[in-house]
Amino acid sequence: MCGIVGKVSYKGITQKDIDDIKNMSSAIIHRGPDSEGFYFDENVAFGHRRLSILDLSAAANQPMSDDENTLVLIFNGEIYNHLEIREKLKSKYNFKTDHSDTETILYAYKEWGLECIKYFNGFFAIALYDKIKMETILIRDRMGKKPLFFTMSNNALYFSSEIHAFFKAGIVEKCINEEAIYNYLTFLTTNAPDTFFANIYKLECGHYLKITKNKIEKVRYWNIADFINTSNTDNFLQATEKTEDLLVKSMKYRNIADVDIAIALSGGIDSSLNLFYSSKEGGKIDAINISYDADDIYDESEIAQKFSKELGVKFIKSVISSNDFEELAKEYMTKQIDSPTGDVNSALLYFLSKLSKSNSLKVMIVGEGGDEMGGYPIYEKLNKYD
Rank of each mutant, 00 (worst) to 15 (best):
I13R: 07
M24P: 05
I28M: 06
S35C: 04
Y39C: 03
V44W: 00
F46K: 02
L51V: 03
L54G: 09
N61S: 09
M64P: 02
E68N: 14
E68Y: 11
T70D: 15
I74Y: 01
I79P: 01
Y80M: 04
E84G: 02
I85W: 07
E87D: 13
K92D: 12
K92L: 10
F95C: 09
D101P: 06
T104G: 03
I105W: 01
Y109P: 01
C116F: 07
I117K: 04
F123M: 15
A127K: 03
D130Y: 00
E135K: 14
I137R: 02
I139D: 00
R140F: 05
R142L: 02
F149E: 07
T151I: 04
M152T: 08
Y158C: 05
A165Q: 11
K174P: 02
E179A: 11
L185C: 07
T186I: 02
F196Y: 12
G206N: 03
H207D: 01
L209S: 04
T212I: 00
R220F: 08
T230R: 15
T230Q: 13
T230N: 13
N232G: 13
T233Q: 14
N235R: 09
N235K: 08
F236P: 06
Q238K: 13
E244Q: 12
L247V: 14
K252C: 13
I256T: 11
V259T: 12
I263P: 02
L265H: 09
G267W: 06
G268M: 10
I269Q: 00
S272V: 03
S272E: 05
N274E: 10
E281W: 03
G282K: 10
G283H: 14
N289F: 04
I290C: 07
Y298I: 09
Y298N: 15
S301M: 06
I303K: 13
A304V: 00
K306S: 15
F307D: 03
E310F: 08
F315M: 04
S322E: 15
D324E: 13
M333S: 15
I337F: 03
D338C: 08
D338S: 09
D338F: 04
S346L: 12
L348S: 14
F351E: 14
F351S: 11
L352K: 08
S356G: 13
K357F: 09
G367E: 08
E372K: 05
G374L: 04
Y379K: 06
D386R: 14
